[in-house]
Computed example of a mutant assay.
Amino acid sequence: MKRDVRSRSELLRIGGRSVAWVPPLLMLVGITLIDFNTAGEFQMITWVVLVPGIAAAICGVWGTAAFAVLALLTFLLADTSYPDRYQSGLPDFLLVGIGGALAVLACAVRVRGERRMLHMRDVADTTRRTVLRPLPDDWAGLDHAAVYLASDVEARVGGDFYDIQPGPHGTRVLVGDVQGKGLGAVETAAALLGTFREAGYHEADLTTVADRLEVRMLRHRGHIKALGRGEEEHRFATAVLLGFPDDAPDAVDVVVFGHEPPLIAGPGGVRHLPSGEGLPLGLGELAADGPPPVRRVPLAPDETLLLTTDGVTEARDAEGRFYPLAAEVTDAVAADPRIAEPRRLVAFVRDGTLRHCGGRLADDTTVFAVRRPARRQAGDDPAGKGRLQS
């Protein structure tokens, strides 16, 4: 099992070797030397009871047990070395022995807790990879980059979602944000992504894909209501659905479900897409004009679509001011047109957001950038590529 989270003992390494045993050993030696160099009734040797306690915090169970035994033997040696001196005797011997035993027990509890935490991290990472599956470079013939930052660091996954789905009718992209937090939001995001991956591949019309997403949201809410989870039955999701048609290489189709509209950044500057009047997924029945329209927008090969969730746009600084995303990106692209490249653009927005809010994210944060490659080699078949890898 691959583990990217290490226990404290594993972090105490020099040159690949653990040095967790050094602090308790230095304390043991120090206490012993001080005790042998003091006279009279003042003796520090009883302080060796602290040694297994220190080991319990940074060493393994067997290491802590070794220090508990070593502390007990050191106490006996020091306490009986000079018969004419005052000796601590049996009470302190029992104190050191009991202290060592309790330290070993505490270490066992700590190690068990760390293993459980590592297991939960693995579960969270697996859930995240399932919901937000890793996207290979140049997936579906698109140049893309993404970063996801969960507001709950321990959970590592939340209600933001994104994916790219190639298919015989072009490549589709979905970026969105489920209202609310917790596992319920993750469940909703997984349901919407599952529908998108199927409909985005099979359906020829992007409007049909949008309708399928709305229906899936309503069905999911009905299921939640039937389960009696009333606090989640009114959940909705904002989203942006993109279509990159093969027959229109200089355009992109856009459907906005109550989400912040994308920015288009390129060497010529930054422009805003119209927000439209679409309501979030799950609230479509309230729309007087029906489902949101599909808008075809010109998109040059060197222009990048930037999509973010409200973790970016609603990030606040110490004075309560929102992060000025459009202004920051506009200034950055004007100063260096290369910022419009997806990877650079995502890194710039991520760093700017964290700097603006001081690293304290109030909501899950997703930054996603995508564009068509400047040049596509003849014979490339992104749809076929998707069929092999999806």
Results as ranks from 00 to 15, higher is better:
residue 358 G to M: 04
residue 198 E to P: 00
residue 342 P to M: 07
residue 86 Y to L: 11
residue 272 H to R: 15
residue 299 L to T: 11
residue 65 A to P: 01
residue 215 V to S: 08
residue 40 G to R: 03
residue 107 C to V: 01
residue 68 A to W: 09
residue 318 A to D: 14
residue 333 V to P: 05
residue 22 V to I: 08
residue 221 R to Q: 09
residue 343 R to G: 04
residue 312 V to G: 02
residue 29 V to F: 10
residue 23 P to C: 02
residue 260 E to P: 02
residue 335 A to W: 03
residue 286 L to D: 12
residue 100 G to L: 05
residue 246 D to V: 10
residue 43 Q to T: 10
residue 6 R to M: 09
residue 45 I to K: 04
residue 257 F to R: 05
residue 260 E to R: 13
residue 121 R to F: 07
residue 138 D to T: 04
residue 271 R to P: 05
residue 167 G to E: 14
residue 318 A to S: 12
residue 390 S to L: 15
residue 66 A to I: 00
residue 383 A to D: 08
residue 121 R to G: 00
residue 137 D to H: 07
residue 36 F to E: 14
residue 38 T to K: 14
residue 385 K to R: 15
residue 221 R to F: 01
residue 377 Q to N: 03
residue 95 L to Y: 09
residue 356 H to A: 02
residue 207 T to L: 11
residue 368 F to H: 02
residue 341 E to R: 09
residue 180 G to Y: 08
residue 2 K to L: 14
residue 37 N to A: 12
residue 312 V to L: 06
residue 236 F to S: 13
residue 168 P to M: 02
residue 229 R to K: 12
residue 291 P to I: 01
residue 105 L to E: 15
residue 83 P to V: 12
residue 365 T to W: 15
residue 306 L to Y: 08
residue 230 G to A: 14
residue 327 A to G: 06
residue 272 H to A: 11
residue 141 G to C: 04
residue 174 L to Q: 04
residue 354 L to F: 12
residue 358 G to I: 05
residue 54 I to D: 01
residue 42 F to S: 10
residue 27 M to S: 12
residue 323 Y to E: 01
residue 167 G to V: 12
residue 368 F to T: 02
residue 367 V to L: 06
residue 52 P to N: 05
residue 303 E to V: 02
residue 143 D to K: 06
residue 210 A to T: 04
residue 303 E to S: 06
residue 26 L to G: 03
residue 242 L to D: 10
residue 216 R to D: 00
residue 387 R to Y: 14
residue 311 G to M: 01
residue 345 L to Y: 05
residue 204 A to F: 00
residue 58 I to T: 10
residue 64 T to G: 01
residue 283 L to F: 12
residue 253 D to V: 06
residue 61 V to M: 07
residue 184 G to I: 07
residue 225 K to Y: 14
residue 190 A to S: 13
residue 122 D to N: 10
residue 346 V to Y: 10
residue 300 A to C: 11
residue 126 T to N: 07
residue 66 A to F: 07
residue 70 L to V: 08
residue 101 A to N: 11
residue 97 G to Y: 00
residue 179 Q to G: 06
residue 329 V to H: 13
residue 17 R to V: 01
residue 240 V to I: 07
residue 300 A to Q: 14
residue 147 V to C: 12
residue 173 V to F: 08
residue 77 L to W: 14
residue 317 D to I: 03
residue 390 S to Q: 10
residue 270 V to G: 08
residue 210 A to D: 03
residue 40 G to Y: 05
residue 217 M to N: 01
residue 179 Q to V: 09
residue 145 A to N: 14
residue 21 W to N: 05
residue 207 T to P: 03
residue 231 E to Q: 13
residue 343 R to H: 14
residue 49 V to E: 02
residue 331 D to M: 13
residue 186 V to F: 07
residue 114 E to Q: 13
residue 288 A to Y: 09
residue 138 D to V: 04
residue 254 V to S: 03
residue 252 V to K: 06
residue 344 R to Y: 08
residue 329 V to A: 02
residue 312 V to C: 03
residue 225 K to H: 15
residue 36 F to I: 13
residue 280 P to K: 08
residue 311 G to P: 06
residue 243 G to M: 13
residue 142 L to D: 08
residue 259 H to F: 08
residue 145 A to I: 11
residue 85 R to F: 04
residue 45 I to S: 03
residue 387 R to D: 15
residue 302 D to K: 03
residue 51 V to S: 02
residue 17 R to I: 00
residue 315 A to F: 13
residue 353 T to M: 06
residue 165 Q to G: 00
residue 118 L to Q: 13
